[in-house]
């Protein structure tokens, strides 16, 4: 109850497919058992990198805005968009800067490197330890459920539309078994030359 990671609730999942990645989040914002908003997306875009943030809502917003600032400064300095791998190291070092007073978030990054064309996903703990995964990354209050659904539904080299379905089903069925997540979802399906964002209605309870 007083665990900062489970006051507001929320879930994020990212998956790798064949030359594509998918990232999805739920839309709930709550205070303990009370739902305050059903339109609180947890995925933020930074050029080619997509950042999902679960945890304490205030830190989700703070981090999203901090990275908007940092990525904009990067783009002005470098005159190019930030690569997902670079973004991962930026997130990691920004979190570790607060090693002894952390932001209570569990970030997830998904994206396709426009230079190499390689899909990339990774996750972090709240102090910036990177989890490079070849398959999928989960985070949030429904992470146990997401581990179960992703581990059983996911398979290698899924085409974009199949990856979208796998990711959506994993997310939807997981948040339905978590009281603190749900109320709709956003799913991004990212290929080298196209990004599709879909709004999933999901159960409204």
């Amino acid at each position: 109850m007083s665990n900062p990671f489970s006051i507001n609730g929320g879930a994020v999942v990212a998956m790798v497919g064949k030359d594509c990645v998918a990232i999805g989040c739920d839309l709930r914002l709550g205070m303990q058992a009370l739902t305050v908003s059903n339109n609180f997306p947890k995925i933020f875009t930074y050029g080619d990198a997509y950042l999902g943030l679960t945890g304490l809502a205030t830190d989700v917003t703070t981090m999203a805005e901090l990275f908007r600032y940092k990525v904009n400064m990067y783009r002005l300095r470098e005159e190019r968009a930030i690569e997902p791998e670079t973004m991962a190291n930026l997130v990691s070092s920004s979190l570790y800067e607060r090693r002894f007073g952390p932001y209570f978030v569990s970030p997830v990054i998904a994206g396709i490197n426009q230079r190499t064309g390689k899909p990339f996903i990774c996750g972090f703990d709240s102090i910036g330890c990177i989890d490079f995964a070849k398959d999928f990354i989960v985070s949030g209050t429904a992470s146990d459920q997401l581990f179960g659904t992703c581990e059983s539904l996911w398979e290698p080299d899924l085409e974009p539309e199949d990856l979208f379905e796998t990711c959506s089903q994993a997310l939807l069925n997981s948040v339905d078994r978590d009281a603190l997540s749900g109320w709709g979802a956003h799913v991004y399906i990212i290929t080298k030359d196209k990004v599709i964002k879909r709004l999933l209605k999901g159960r409204q309870d």
Partner: peptide
């Protein structure tokens, strides 16, 4: 121990939760 991992999978694959008939627009 792993019921929280297994239950949502079973929801989906045994009770077909969140699955809709194709072409019926959900």
């Amino acid at each position: 121990a792993a019921s929280s991992l297994i239950v949502p999978f079973l929801d989906n694959q045994v009770e077909f939760k969140n699955q809709y008939v194709p072409g019926t627009n959900f």
